[in-house]
Amino acid sequence: MAGRKLLLLLKPVDAYHATQSIPASLFTNPRVFHYLDNRCKVHKEAVDFCQKILQKKSVDWQPIFRNDLSQPIRNVDLVVTVGGDGTLLQASHFMDDSVPVIGVNSDPTQAEEVEEFSNEFDANRSTGYLCAATVKNFEQVLDSFLEGQTVPSKLSRISVSVNSKVLPTYALNDILIAHPCPATLSRFSFKIKRDDNTCSQLVNCRSSGLRVSTAAGSTAAMLSAGGFAMPILSQDLQYMVREPIATGGAISGLMHGLIKSDQSIDAAWFSKEGSIYVDGSYVFFTIQSGDTIEISSKAPVLQVVLPPHLLS
């Protein structure tokens, strides 16, 4: 354990003052302010708790707020993220396959609270799907890793190339290729290509875009759109054409499917504008008509200590 270097990546405390999910008419409601203040308080207490645990360990560690990340994470033995899945996802964009990560869900959803506010607003807190720990078991999870009893899992990520140039950010959850305006039609074509250069037939699409998810991300937007959950350690990707305009029977069977580890999607973009969104809306790359895009799982994996129930 001695000599280990650890990076503690923190969600800023003031991030919990965001109120976009709460109607403006409720801002004067004391219960709503109590809810928001409690979220901030619970997260701050979790941050303080994790730091106190680390102070007891024979490890060198450094805290940093996630918004201050600007360089690749290197020369550490472990990253601990304190926040939720968003904080872990943001960390993953700065990590290769050499550094493992443990996620701490600092503000878990409270079922009784969701029920209490169900007729007023969405009171769900953090899902923490990929987070192996909360304050209740953080020390246990950390010790198990440091003592070599817990081995991180290798999660597949998505690699995207535009005009044969690999984008610098790999997706842990999913990518969305679409027009920046959600009401605007996206025009593109694609085919599934194997490493031996055999291809599916070309599919010409007019739709609201193309989504591709990893196994880890298959329970997020992909599942909500009608996709299916995949075993989390699968190396396959799942793709879906969003809201396609009616197509023939043969083509419609290619609107949704799997990209095997020895396959890629080769796409061509034909709308004037477009964006490739990586793990949500904050990280995106612009594309234009005539650009070619290649999507595959040939990206460095991410080593993540997962909750045991995801592996059962």
Score class of each variant (00 low, 15 high):
residue 268 A to P: 00
residue 118 S to D: 10
residue 244 P to I: 03
residue 71 Q to F: 13
residue 269 W to D: 00
residue 188 F to P: 00
residue 97 D to A: 15
residue 224 S to G: 10
residue 136 K to T: 13
residue 179 H to P: 01
residue 51 Q to L: 03
residue 271 S to H: 04
residue 53 I to S: 12
residue 143 D to P: 13
residue 67 N to I: 15
residue 141 V to S: 07
residue 120 E to K: 03
residue 18 A to R: 05
residue 186 S to R: 01
residue 90 Q to F: 07
residue 270 F to L: 10
residue 231 P to A: 03
residue 2 A to G: 15
residue 63 P to F: 11
residue 278 V to G: 05
residue 208 S to K: 00
residue 76 V to L: 10
residue 44 K to N: 15
residue 219 T to L: 07
residue 215 A to S: 13
residue 270 F to N: 14
residue 193 K to F: 04
residue 93 H to Y: 09
residue 241 V to E: 04
residue 202 L to T: 11
residue 47 V to G: 11
residue 286 T to C: 07
residue 245 I to D: 06
residue 127 T to L: 11
residue 229 A to C: 09
residue 108 P to R: 06
residue 131 C to A: 06
residue 107 D to S: 08
residue 159 S to C: 08
residue 301 V to T: 11
residue 116 E to W: 15
residue 200 S to M: 01
residue 179 H to A: 04
residue 302 L to S: 12
residue 42 V to R: 08
residue 292 T to G: 07
residue 158 I to S: 00
residue 291 D to Y: 00
residue 70 S to C: 15
residue 121 F to N: 00
residue 130 L to P: 03
residue 233 L to G: 02
residue 95 M to E: 10
residue 180 P to N: 02
residue 82 V to N: 09
residue 237 L to V: 04
residue 213 S to N: 04
residue 111 A to W: 06
residue 20 Q to I: 10
residue 48 D to C: 10
residue 268 A to Q: 11
residue 226 G to W: 05
residue 273 E to S: 14
residue 67 N to M: 10
residue 154 K to F: 06
residue 33 F to K: 15
residue 113 E to Y: 02
residue 172 L to T: 10
residue 157 R to W: 04
residue 266 D to C: 09
residue 181 C to P: 09
residue 262 D to H: 15
residue 284 F to D: 05
residue 231 P to T: 09
residue 45 E to F: 14
residue 113 E to L: 05
residue 116 E to P: 06
residue 35 Y to T: 03
residue 9 L to I: 12
residue 111 A to T: 12
residue 164 S to E: 06
residue 111 A to K: 05
residue 307 P to V: 03
residue 35 Y to E: 02
residue 96 D to R: 15
residue 179 H to L: 02
residue 260 K to S: 15
